[in-house]
Design a protein around this nucleic acid. Structure first.
Lengths: 300, 300
DNA sequence: TTTTTATATTCCATAATGGAATATTATTGT
DNA sequence: ACAATAATATTCCATTATGGAATATAAAAA
């Protein structure tokens, strides 16, 4: 089991493109790389096979007899790879499977109901969903390991298309036992944030990132963070029971505030707004299960 | 013409080896790389195809359905690359390989020495040589199954180019026990051929053909052919031991006659002359190994 | 002969790869 | 239940590979 001097598929692609485009310079344009890189790939491929594949005749490159054999292998291998990719997509689509990624707060709050509704409306489709941080979700989208994502931050990558889903805010939220609630204080200045004992999500969480971005622009003392907790539900429980404060997404805080289970303390001259995003890989825009899920999202 | 996320053949090799060796650590040993590199190649391959190829089941990796398709492609692609490499080696050796055909008498008498000299002088070249009758040699030249022939008859075909090599004759030859030798007779008339008991080569042999052509033009009785023997060396032995006669190529008879082991009986007014030929297929005139062999022939 | 076209090479910055060391996951044995 | 073992995954870092700007070389065209 010895694999020595394995050729590069990118080298085979270069050989094929040189032949079919009639030269190195044209191939470079079609491959979106520079001319030297094309020449180098071709010559590197020759090293793999230990023989000349193209030689210069009348100023242009022509296949050698050996080159013709390698060209045939190149075309077959590349075509088969394309077919394989289609096959893999069919395999994924064939099961009508949506690979969905959502950030944690969205996962905790929206996902259960979304999944139930989706399953009732589209019983033929399947969903694999997972919760994750924005960064890793972005990676999974880019690499094709996810079909669709719903996120609290807009991904920043040329291969990802985003569309807005909902507008949201982060509310400074406390429980019923908090002194500010006891003293019937519902609005503060930003400087007063230093008086609070905070329990916040961990640093990678979208809520935390957005909070720190918004407060980082203010000339205030650092927050007094007593705890980092990896679950918004747990934070809500802590707020119920103690005298801590946290920044919660409005979609989580608002129902609780309306039922007087938690209290929103407004910050004068500060609204931490954000958008919830739908994100997809640019190359998967024909994914019909994802389209179905998005139509459901749009009903919110 | 877009080639994005092309897989790595080394990644395909890793996948194949993991499957066939039953795990990452064993695959690492077989590939002569470290375990982390194997894992990374596998996971990098998954990124190329945008789907999981192997997942951990009971502590070990197992192929996913997608992984099975990629494994199949991997095996095919790697095997075809191996075949391609062999093919390229054959192609390369092909240009250094001489397929030589010679008629039997030349094969018996000249070929051993020729091959030894050729091998010493041109160690980088290979020769496949075979003995044959003129007819079949001609066919093999025409069909490209032979590169070069040395023959006792000139082939007659538009695709075969011939050049003279040596001039030769056929000598009526007898052994020391023959009555004509005992009676010190060294020249006869053609009519006296009927008095001889002949041992000749088989009908397809060039010697036989040339002999019968030469004698067929004479108004003499048919030869008394006691034996047909398929080897000129055997004929020489028979002449030593008995009272038969034969027609031998001068290049075989002359050394023996000069040392009084055999005797040449001249035929008045008859010299059976012939030429030894170098023959090639018209379309293979740039065969440099053949040129090398011909240069050696020219030294005779 | 000069200009234009096509490919090859050099030098350098960046990206990719492999491995030692370590971490994590899972199974087995006591 | 815990410790030991087996298998895979991850981190960090050094080395190697790759692409491109600039330039050189080869060949054709004007």
């Amino acid at each position: 089991m010895e694999y020595k001097n394995l050729p590069d598929l990118s080298g085979l692609a270069a050989l094929r493109t040189i032949v079919e485009q009639g030269g190195v310079s044209n191939a470079a344009k079609r491959l979106f790389i520079g001319q030297p890189a094309v020449t180098k790939r071709l010559r590197a491929l020759e090293t793999c096979y230990g023989t000349s594949l193209m030689e210069r005749v009348a100023g242009r490159l022509r296949l050698t007899p050996a080159g013709e054999k390698v060209y045939t292998y190149a075309v077959q291998t590349l075509e088969r790879n394309s077919l394989l990719i289609e096959e893999l997509q069919s395999l994924a689509e064939g099961t009508n499977l949506l690979r969905l990624e959502v950030t944690f707060s969205i996962g905790d709050h929206f996902l259960p109901e979304l999944l139930v509704q989706f399953s009732e409306r589209f019983p033929q489709y399947k969903i694999n969903s997972r919760l994750g941080y924005s960064k890793s979700i972005q990676t999974r989208l880019v690499t094709g390991l996810a079909d669709l994502a719903v996120m609290e931050n807009a991904p920043d990558h040329p291969d990802i298309l985003v569309q807005k889903w909902l507008e949201d805010e982060l509310w400074l939220t406390v429980g019923p036992n908090h002194p500010f609630v006891q003293n019937n204080i519902r609005e503060i200045n930003a400087e007063q944030l230093a008086e609070f004992s905070f329990v916040l999500r961990e640093k990678q969480a979208a809520v935390r990132i957005t909070t720190e971005e918004a407060l980082g622009n203010l000339a205030i003392e650092p927050l007094n963070i007593k705890m980092e907790v990896g679950s918004t539900d747990a934070i809500v429980e802590i707020l119920f029971r103690g005298q801590h404060a946290s920044f919660l997404p409005r979609f989580i805080a608002e129902p609780l505030v309306k039922t007087n289970k938690l209290y929103w303390i407004k910050i004068a001259k500060l609204n931490i707004k954000r958008t919830l995003w739908i994100a997809r890989n640019r190359t998967s825009l024909d994914h019909h299960v994802a389209e179905a899920f998005i139509s459901l999202l749009r009903e919110y």
